[in-house]
Simulated assay, not measured.
Amino acid sequence: MKGLTGVGLGWRRPLAHFIDGRSDLGFVEVLAEHLDAKGPLPEPLVRLRERGVPVVLHGVSLGLGGAEPPSPERLARLARLAERLGAVGVSEHLAFVRAGGVESGHLLPVSRDEASLEILAENVRLAEAALPVPLALENVASLFEWPAPAFDEAGLLAGVLERTGALVLLDVANLYANAHNLGTDTRAVLEAVPRERLAYVHVAGGVREGALYHDTHAHPLPEGPLDLLEALAARVGPVPVLLERDDRYPPPEELAGELEATRGALARGVARRVGAA
């Protein structure tokens, strides 16, 4: 996506003042569901746009992994918001969120079989055609898998890339959760996305509860996602990275520390790549 560089932060109203005072953020990401498609934009977002900070519009409710095509009304709303924000792109999840008008309330994994992949790809193509900017697809964290998958998570990503023109928002925090909970092969997923199709990367915090790891976006950023970010940068070089925080907002110094830790992991990965070359 054009203009995305460095390390960014997810824009949330409780973080608006913190973001407004930072000159080192490469970009921000705004939740589409938190904005009024017809009303005025929040003033802090207007100021960011005037400063030339790139903005990505991030959705959670499109439901590209469902059997039904994405709602034309939802797509039109995303398109309007992207234009009003001057967004450089839209990102959404490779997820199943509703069926028959019933909302799951969660980003559920897509069944990994050929029929589901074909439906997913068709839904993605419909979304691409309706949006005025590039679309990036995010892998999701899960606590379960559908029975008898025909291919792994890397295969799902590769299949979508083969069948569509979409980009990838690679969430290494979600990947870390899936590796812990489901035994996902992280290396295969990191290698499944060509650099030219990688729009940007997410990192976020989470917490272990019993045998499971929950991607909460409300806890400190652990080493696991940062290790995966470093491994990715060692393979493809520098990539735009965005830190997500959605709840239990920490003091400014702690949040700044997580941004620095993200920059450090990215720099270590790039240095490994240079050293290997």
Results as ranks from 00 to 15, higher is better:
A82P: 07
E83F: 10
R84K: 03
R84V: 00
L85N: 11
L85W: 07
V88L: 06
G89A: 13
E92D: 15
F96P: 06
F96C: 01
V97Q: 06
G100R: 01
G100M: 00
S104I: 07
G105D: 10
H106P: 00
H106L: 15
L108M: 07
S111I: 10
D113V: 01
A115I: 11
A115C: 05
S116V: 04
S116W: 11
S116A: 14
L120E: 15
L120V: 11
L120T: 14
A121C: 14
A121W: 13
E122T: 10
L126V: 04
L126F: 02
A127M: 02
E128H: 08
A130V: 02
A130E: 08
A130W: 01
A130D: 05
P134C: 00
L135R: 07
L135C: 01
L137E: 14
V140I: 15
E145W: 05
P149Y: 09
A150H: 13
A150V: 12
F151W: 10
F151D: 14
D152P: 11
E153H: 02
A154Y: 04
G155L: 00
G155E: 09
L156V: 00
A158V: 03
A158E: 15
A158G: 02
A158K: 12
G159C: 01
G159F: 01
G159V: 05
E162W: 02
E162M: 08
E162T: 13
E162C: 07
R163N: 10
R163G: 07
G165V: 13
A166E: 14
L167A: 05
L170I: 09
L170P: 05
D171V: 01
V172Y: 04
V172E: 09
A173L: 01
A173P: 05
A173S: 15
N174G: 04
L175T: 12
Y176C: 05
N178K: 09
H180S: 09
H180T: 14
N181L: 03
L182H: 11
L182F: 03
D185C: 05
T186C: 11
T186V: 15
R187A: 15
R187F: 07
V189H: 03
L190E: 10
L190Y: 08
A192K: 06
A192E: 10
P194N: 10
P194C: 05
E196G: 08
E196P: 08
E196Y: 06
L198T: 13
L198W: 13
